[in-house]
Nucleic acid binder design. Structure first.
Lengths: 201, 201
DNA sequence: TGGTCTAGGTGTACGCCGTACACCCACAGA
DNA sequence: TCTGTGGGTGTACGGCGTACACCTAGACCA
């Protein structure tokens, strides 16, 4: 069933999926009630791929590695994060995953309310993706640098930052804008914050 | 032009908008190249509503209040956050807003890289909305409590949390699941984190 | 005054989408 | 042998974004 996710991009339509399976579109409706249910299905398939890993030891590395595992699973299927957004009701596998994360927090000594806040603060990051306002991985550094210079007059700060990123990408030494780094940076920032808040009481 | 955003919900279609304006669908294409451009237009209109407020004083309250102002603007137009997601290229007004935020950070003494990380860590929260995995505002507390009990067997931690929230909502005293509170909580957590990291070097 | 230019509205049409409804067949169990 | 029934089929509807050709009311200038 979820075989369809390899070939099928985000522009996945019932008709396309059907022909992909060598079948007539309406045949799909013998297996799923509607497209939403199908999406729920493939989301569940992806989320079930997340390797939970051991639940022992410190809560922080445990949660950290579990979330990073989720990120790996989601990165394997780039369309998945897009599919999860906008879905109104969580699928069972998502619920199970969330439950496991909450369990780690609770085992680490967090109170119910603290975990509740933490879940909200993590938001979609809990599933390994963060919602950026825009793709910043479009072009080669040279073009990016050109664009940055062009907007230096209207958006000086933005341009300054863009230039720095473009420069870092050209000189291989710099980390440039490394999504994985940014993700872990933000994740650690949040986890540290949770820990500090808990200790503060 | 942006008048269309009042009546038009997320199920906004060129045809619907056209009839709303008492005009034939194709007439719209004399003003915008395609639907994406129209969306960019109304997004810009909403983002331009954000009141920037004064840029003086401490960086933290300044940024905090500016982001909360963005949240107010976005809350006035519930469809806007959905529209901003998935847009590949940022609109000019979004760029201007981001530039202003970066400016506040820089004026507060943050280095270019530090701001860069901060922007990524904030993600969509910078525009006043956070991407939740699912709506948790569906039903009355009683039904919610029922559902929570039902899933206590399979998802104990989740159920525990859901019960707490439902309970808090019933006894008026508790904050329950207050989106505004959660948002500010996470925002402050991040801002505090930025400050701490900067002081640490 | 007449001629041309043009901004904006119109009508028709195409190819896509999700899916309702009626049909039909192969086969399992009685 | 009859009868369900699970799963594939065909047709059709209404909605979508939008390409293309056409028309019209004014603006502008000679």
């Amino acid at each position: 069933m979820a075989l369809a996710d390899e070939a099928g991009l985000d522009g996945l339509s019932m008709r396309r999926l059907a022909t992909e399976l060598g079948v007539v579109p309406m045949a799909l409706y013998k297996h799923v009630a509607n497209k939403d249910e199908l999406l729920d299905g493939i989301i569940d398939a992806v989320v079930s791929e997340i390797e939970l890993g051991p639940a022992e030891g410190d809560w922080k590395p445990a949660i950290r590695s579990r979330i990073l595992a989720a990120r790996q699973a989601l990165l394997r299927h780039p369309w998945a994060s897009g599919a999860i957004e906008g879905r109104r009701n969580p699928t069972p596998a998502v619920l199970a995953y969330m439950d496991s994360i909450i369990g780690l927090f609770r085992a680490g000594g967090f109170g119910v309310d603290e975990v509740h806040h933490a879940i909200h603060a993590l938001g979609s990051r809990i599933l390994g993706f963060s919602q950026e306002l825009f793709d910043d991985t479009p072009a080669d550094p040279d073009a990016q640098e050109k664009a940055a210079h062009a907007m230096a007059a209207t958006f000086p700060w933005l341009a300054e930052m863009a230039l720095r990123v473009a420069h870092d990408e050209k000189t291989v030494v710099g980390s440039g804008c490394d999504d994985q780094f940014e993700f872990e940076y933000a994740l650690d920032l949040l986890l540290d914050g949770f820990e500090r808040l808990r200790q503060a009481g």
